[in-house]
Design a protein around this nucleic acid. Structure first.
Lengths: 283, 283
DNA sequence: GTTCCGCATGAATCGATAG
DNA sequence: ACTATCGATTCATGCGGAA
């Protein structure tokens, strides 16, 4: 299957207007977090964050398919000794726009940033807010089932009969590590808590989130040939993973240097797709 | 040291008014979640939750010492396919009352309730909201330090198999087993994500949190002889743990049957204090 | 070719210092 | 007084070079 990766250079809100209504299956993005410093790239002040984001989320609501899902990766920072409240205010405002706040996943960052302070521990988690247009949406739960070890066999007994009933529509799709050879009784559905380490500097680029994060949600909410959108592309992790998983994708980036970097990374992927160095495994 | 456990039967807001200003070091509680446990607390509708809780939190603000901490264990339910937003609204309103929203800890429930739904995974986490009166408050971080990553891994390999199994769920976040005899340089400060299994209690009270949860926060925010308050006592876990850890405590419960049950559990502790069956985590 | 160890590096936060 | 900048603190991870 031939998939297309469409990279757009420009302002997010403006570029979104070139995308048709109801055309995207999954939006996965990690926007610039609010920052008190003014000079940093993408730095939006916490007090201005909601009014900055709402026009964008309005466009996202328009382009998302009725059966699609929007995953927003974000975490509020400490300001003046308190956690900022702008994310809560954003959720409340997005619901007024028509979004349904379906779920909040937790990304547990096993290796979080170090540090010590007299009244606070290290922050080891981020929010993955799930928004939808309708109560009914596509969700391919079997794709993210995880093997369970011997230690969990006791828990398996506690699962109800419905847990063991599965759609037979799913076939091993051939990307990444295929787990379809696991027997049903050896797999369990995950929870809404994800354990992933942040990726360090493996190559000459640094990603805000690990590849496993978009990979998990792309598996869960799309099938091959679907369209994935990341309106804050950054280093392009979402689009790279989408391409590898045979999903079409759109990436929007306002900074030319990031845009060019992703372009140079996306194109050669074809060449290296079957090279041994490419990481496919998901843990 | 002689500690007192003061159990009060009655309405929470009313009973709180008998407690002096600035007298409590730690408030740890898990109030009735919206629309849950209807038979026990009468069930508060999500839409009414904020206005129901605000008079209580106002009293809590009054009785808490300026250096004290309020930990609120809560998790919003799914209503009509969406996560309820009353907790966010509650945080915003409590800040208007004068509370500082210092931090949000995550309790990762390793063994969460089983089940399967077409558009949702099992909910494996709850919020532990930290509120304070001032930016400066007492925090005894060294009390909850945990073994450092690599060191713990290599050392744990040398432990017997039973030791590993017993401590597996506890070492990660410093719950349970006393580790104070380990050297300081082998210990690290924990993060704001707590890994703790829910207790399978054969007792007939609902939705009790595991003892490790109040234990961790009592260690972190109080010292011996301090005063701990649980305005929604329920099965009295907070007060039991506080007593065991030589903290004075106050518990308020509106349901006579719970109140009597806790009374019968708290009092005999004196008799069994040195019996072999009693668990003593602290040495 | 393994295993082991050293080291740089993060979506961080606070307190002090400087304008 | 209030805001912007900087240094100190801290630890899991994955890389590369060494044994």
């Amino acid at each position: 299957m031939e998939v297309k990766t469409d990279l757009k250079l420009g302002d997010c809100e403006k570029e979104l207007k070139n995308i048709p209504n109801n055309s995207v299956d999954l939006i996965f993005t990690s926007p610039p977090y609010a920052d008190q410093r003014k000079n940093t790239y993408g730095g939006i002040h916490p007090d201005k964050y909601v009014e900055w984001f709402l026009p964008i989320s309005k466009q996202l609501l328009r382009v998302l398919k009725p059966t699609g899902t929007f995953i927003l990766n974000i975490k509020e920072k400490v300001v003046n000794g308190e956690r900022s409240t702008y994310i809560m205010e954003l959720i409340l405002e997005m619901r007024k726009q028509g979004w349904l706040w379906t779920e909040e996943f937790i990304w547990h960052k096993k290796n979080c940033y170090p540090g010590k302070w007299p009244n606070r521990f290290r922050d080891a988690w981020e929010r993955l807010l799930q928004f939808n247009k309708n109560k009914k949406f596509h969700m391919y739960q079997e794709e993210v089932m995880v093997p369970i070890g011997d230690w969990a066999k006791t828990r398996l007994k506690n699962l109800s009969e419905t847990d063991k009933i599965r759609d037979e529509s799913k076939v091993g799709s051939g990307f990444g590590k295929n787990i379809s050879n696991w027997l049903d009784r050896n797999k369990a559905y995950p929870t809404n808590v994800l354990h992933l380490a942040t990726e360090c500097n493996n190559k000459n680029h640094s990603a805000a989130f690990p590849e496993g994060l978009p990979e998990w949600f792309i598996k869960l909410f799309t099938k091959e040939g679907d369209i994935v959108l990341d309106p804050f592309m950054g280093s392009g992790t979402t689009n790279l993973v989408a391409k590898r998983m045979k999903r079409n994708s759109i990436g929007i980036e306002i900074a030319p240097e990031y845009y060019e970097m992703v372009r140079s990374r996306i194109e050669p992927v074809e060449l290296y797709l079957f090279e041994p160095g490419v990481k496919y495994e998901k843990t």
